[in-house]
Each structure stands twice: as structure tokens, then as C-alpha cells.
């Protein structure tokens, strides 16, 4: 039973994980993106469309990444180079994503593809209790876990990662020391958007291999909240994504097994945790340290440098 629950938890958490990692990457550079939901939809549709027409799931993943990247480029251009309002731009990106995928997705409704299947990793998958859940998943799940590690190393062990974080903390100082703030921010938005697109593609290529309008059903917004839950940290993002996915898996299975605990109560838990994390983070803030990028949401203009 534990194995089944863990397996379902990881599957349900993976689309959230991709999207949250993408959002963290963007926010670390100082650009907030409320368009994650829209980007996920773009990824879900283009990924499905490409996989269906070319008959290759790999092509689907690649297309989803680049299509979401292209959609994210609009946001990047507005926020980084035109110094527009990031909240407004992000919200309209979500609206844009919903609209354009409904429009072009119509002809793909009702079609099916086979979707990613499980790949068992020898030896490791034989570990009792966790083996089957962790090491008998599809390739995208493995990729998302590798990504968590990669982003962690990138942030804290590479010079580029350090520069990126400094751009998000104090773009003025970064600029003075010769870092190209615009380039760093734009690249972060592009790659981050691509990752959000992968989150969507996971839904349409592995989780429920078909396309329907609005199939992300609000997961993009949960990802935006998870960034705060994770305190802009990729490993905590993994914990958060699996927590949100896990609660859902648990409450459905508890119903199926016939327990009388209210599903509403369980569904509330992740949000209670989010509030708790916010409270703890704010208390820490009073002591003078906060993981939130200092320049988050503020456009950088060399002329206004303080």
C-alpha cells in the first residue's frame, strides 16, 4: 500500500515540480511570472500535438519546451527590456495561454497517443517499499529529479548561478561588477518558461495522454504558491510538489478504502502548511535574513540605479 501511495504521489507531484522549478529559476533572477498556468497549457498542447503528428514522444517534449519558451519570451521582453509591470504581464500571459490553446487545440480534442510508459531501473527497483515507487517511473520523472539536483548545483556551486542570484538580489551592484543584467534575466525567463512547458507536457504526454481545453486545471497557480512554500529552493520545491501531489493521492485512496475522514479536511492541509511556512519565513525575516530575492518584481533600469 505504501508503495502504491508513494508511486501516485510522485506522479501527481511531477507536473507541479517542473513548473515550480521553472518559476524558481525566473524568480531568482528577479522576474516574477504569474503566467505559469498559461505556459503549462502551451506546453501541454504543443507537446501533445507534436507527439501525435510525429509519433514521437521525444519530439513532443522538445516541442513543448521550445513553444513554452517562445511564449515566455513575450513576458521576458516586456519585463526585462521594456521594464513593464511584471504582474500584469504575467497575468495576461496566463489569459493568452488559455485562449490560444483553446483556439488551436480544438482539432486535437478526442485524439489519443500511447504516452510515456514505465522504465524500470534494475537493482534499485528491488529495494523494498520505495524501490517500485521511485525507480519504476517514466523517464520524465527521472529527468525532473535530476533537474532538482542540477538546479541546486547551478545556484550554489557555479559562478553563473551566483551571478544569476546576484541579479535577483541587487541588479545595480551586479551591473556595476560587469554582469549583463538583461541577458541573465532574459535567459532565466526563457529556460524557466520552457520548464513550465514541460510541466504541462507531462500532463498531456504521461499523466493523462490526451488533450482537452484547460487541462492543467489550476496547477500553474499551485506552482506559483509552491515557490513561496519552497522559499526559492529547488530541493524544497521537490518536497512541496510531492506534498501537494501526495495529499491528493492519499485522500482519494482513503475514500476508496472507505474511511470516513472528511476529504475536505485533507485537501486543506497543503494550504495550511503554506501558511505555516509563510509565518515561519516572516518570523525569520525579522532576524534579518530572507530567501526572497530582494529585487523580485522590480524592473532594472541603469538610469535609476541607487
Amino acid at each position: 500500500m505504501i508503495e502504491i501511495l508513494l508511486f501516485a504521489t510522485i506522479k501527481a507531484g511531477t507536473p507541479l515540480l517542473f513548473a515550480t522549478l521553472g518559476a524558481i529559476l525566473m524568480e531568482r533572477s528577479g522576474v516574477i511570472n504569474l503566467g505559469v498556468e498559461g505556459l503549462m497549457l502551451v506546453g501541454a498542447l504543443t507537446g501533445f500535438a507534436a507527439a501525435h503528428t510525429t509519433d514521437s514522444l521525444f519530439m513532443g517534449v522538445i516541442t513543448a519546451f521550445f513553444a513554452a519558451m517562445a511564449a515566455g519570451a513575450i513576458h521576458g521582453f516586456i519585463c526585462v527590456y521594456l521594464r513593464g509591470n511584471q504582474i500584469v504581464s504575467g497575468l495576461s500571459l496566463t489569459m493568452f495561454g488559455i485562449g490560444i490553446t483553446s483556439l488551436f487545440g480544438r482539432s486535437f480534442v478526442g485524439l489519443t497517443i500511447s504516452g510515456f510508459s514505465k522504465v524500470e531501473i534494475p537493482v534499485l527497483s528491488k529495494i523494498p517499499y520505495i524501490g517500485q515507487a521511485l525507480f519504476n517511473q517514466d523517464v520524465l520523472v527521472y529527468f525532473s529529479i535530476l533537474l532538482v539536483v542540477a538546479i541546486h548545483i547551478f545556484f550554489y556551486r557555479t559562478k553563473t548561478g551566483l551571478y544569476l542570484r546576484s541579479v535577483g538580489e541587487n541588479p545595480g551592484a551586479a551591473d556595476t561588477s560587469g554582469i549583463n543584467v538583461g541577458l541573465y534575466r532574459m535567459s532565466a525567463v526563457l529556460v524557466g518558461s520552457g520548464l513550465a512547458g514541460l510541466g504541462g507536457a507531462y500532463l498531456s504526454l504521461a499523466y493523462t495522454p490526451f488533450w482537452v481545453e484547460n487541462m492543467t486545471a489550476g496547477r500553474g497557480w499551485i506552482a506559483v504558491a509552491l515557490v513561496i512554500f519552497a522559499q526559492w529552493n529547488s530541493t524544497r520545491a521537490m518536497a512541496g510538489a510531492y506534498l501537494f501531489g501526495g495529499i491528493n493521492a492519499v485522500q482519494l485512496r482513503m475514500q476508496a478504502m472507505g474511511t470516513s475522514l472528511s476529504p475536505h479536511l485533507l485537501m486543506m492541509l497543503p494550504y495550511l502548511f503554506t501558511i505555516a511556512v509563510l509565518v515561519i519565513a516572516t518570523l525569520r525575516l525579522e532576524k534579518g535574513s530572507t530567501p526572497e530575492p530582494e529585487a523580485l518584481g522590480t524592473p532594472y533600469d541603469r538610469e535609476d540605479r541607487k
Binding site: 487541462m215 486545471a217 489550476g218 482519494l252 476508496a256 478504502m257 472507505g258 476529504p263 485537501m267
Partner: peptide, 24 residues
């Protein structure tokens, strides 16, 4: 056996609900 998703439209969650029923 009945599982409530409290959704009209959330493919991911509805699939999960079916999985939980298949598990029992």
C-alpha cells in the same frame, strides 16, 4: 465503490481517483 473528486473537469485528479479505485 465511490470516490468524490469535487471537480467537473480536472483530468489529472479524475485519473488519480480511478487509479485509487483500481487499487482496491
Amino acid at each position: 465503490k465511490v470516490v468524490w473528486t469535487q471537480t467537473w473537469f480536472d483530468p489529472g485528479k479524475e485519473r488519480d481517483a480511478a487509479e485509487s479505485l483500481l487499487d482496491v
